[in-house]
Design a protein around this nucleic acid. Structure first.
Lengths: 253, 253
DNA sequence: AAAGTTATGGTCTTGGCGACCAGAACTTTG
DNA sequence: CAAAGTTCTGGTCGCCAAGACCATAACTTT
């Protein structure tokens, strides 16, 4: 069918006898906004799916790796250079997922601290932070199979939260315990005891490092919280475990 | 060159102006053999890398999904129809990974019970079970970037073992506790207490179902073990947790 | 000054998990 | 046939992480 970029095929080898695909990378950019999980979407300006919201992405170039392509797209979309966490989590190639041609996309997950101001500064036609729940429950229809991609990304970050130290990527360089706890509570949809959470995080050194400073209390007042910054150990696994409580023995789990 | 947010094409779109890729699926087939983890490899009959060992795989067709392509390849290579576990775990698209042309491959992991007899029956030029450690320590060189793919597959199965019930896929339809425990011990490289292991697995019903029968003892004698078959709950998560013991407080973990 | 709100430390209990032991059941060997 | 060896399987003990809950400190606004 379509010709491939023929670079030095062996004698007798004919590239056109193999199906040609376009390869794209899509980057699901997650962030915390207003206490709940949000995803950065862009509005498509052209066919197909013109006018619909979609996950930012673009074509992979032959001379770059998939990871490089994802980071390039992230930089072009948000201006962020070294994202805290850029992880590949899936490839999607169902026939017909793009009505024009055969496209296989490799999906990446990126976690940002506060994408709001950054997204506004880009020249993207239209970009917005959207509540993840609006996407997952179908309130907002996405182009292509992007709803499924977002769902898989959220599922992935739920697992990563326990296995690695993604949590600190959601908050700023300095943060309070309440902010960090809010990340876990929002993504897992659970409530954690503030005192126990604090103990788990501070227990062994290396997870968080207390700066001497204290945060300004919120509008409601209260004791000002200590400000921390992330330690090095977050790259190896997180201190908070998902509360598997609903087991209750017998059958569940 | 290509627009970023615009992954679409206007009317009058010409596919040849976007880079074309070949898309393949590679299936890492893992099995237990002689008490250690083995991977099924095939010897390449053509350029490039002619004569070298490689992970079985092939081109994705435009009219099938990636999962279907993986299952088709698995069937063509081993004759196995519904594999116990076929999971996508990564996409690889480094430039130059295939000297001929631009190829992006999507890698799958499949776990089989005993691939030995099956592999022998296929018409593949040359197929063999190889010790995973031989591949990982470089004793056996693989074509393309397949060593990295195998390494990632093994890492994945290590995690899956704890999260899901892959373990039963390695053993036969009926098995003894010792056989099941050997799977965990081989893949994790740890030793588990036989009594505690048994308790964890039998604790809540649903993980394993005792058949009345007993296995024949090995050459060394001993009490014959009860034979079990897998229950339904293995699809939701496994009963055995990785022994994070080396934490020892302070710093590690 | 009083009331409200948040942060943070203390204590108690529970349950899971690993270490270890002992007996049961069956083998092979003398 | 008896003895020794091997494996399976149930029991017990102790430790520690994790959750529930309370109390107090520290700061706000009214």
């Amino acid at each position: 069918m379509t010709p491939t970029t023929d670079r030095g095929a062996p004698a007798g080898y004919n590239p056109s006898q193999f199906p040609a695909f376009a390869v794209t990378v899509d980057v699901v950019i997650l962030t915390m906004s207003g206490g709940s999980l949000h995803v950065l979407l862009v509005r498509r300006g052209e066919d197909p799916f013109e006018g619909m919201w979609a996950v930012p992405g673009g074509f992979k170039r032959p001379d770059e790796t998939l990871d490089e392509a994802a980071k390039r797209e992230l930089r072009e979309e948000t201006g962020v250079d070294a994202a805290s966490l850029v992880t590949q989590f899936g490839a999607y190639g169902d026939p017909g997922r793009d009505p024009r041609m055969n496209v296989v996309t490799v999906a990446y997950l990126a976690v940002l601290r506060d994408v709001g101001a950054i997204a506004a500064g880009t020249d993207a036609a239209d970009a917005a932070l959207t509540s993840v729940s609006d996407v997952l429950n179908g309130k907002l229809q996405l182009a292509f199979d992007h709803q499924r991609i977002v769902r898989d990304a959220v599922e992935r970050v739920r697992l990563e939260l326990e296995a690695s130290g993604v949590a600190t990527a959601f908050v700023g360089t300095t943060f309070t315990m309440a902010e960090l706890r809010a990340v876990y509570e929002a993504i897992w949809g659970v409530q954690l005891d503030a005192a126990n959470f604090r103990r788990s995080v501070v227990a062994d050194d290396g997870w968080v490092i207390p700066t001497g400073r204290r945060a300004r209390p919120g509008a409601a007042g209260g004791k000002p919280a200590e400000l921390y910054r992330a330690g090095q150990l977050w790259k190896q696994g997180g201190p908070i475990r998902y509360p598997h409580k609903a087991e209750k023995r017998k059958g569940t789990r």
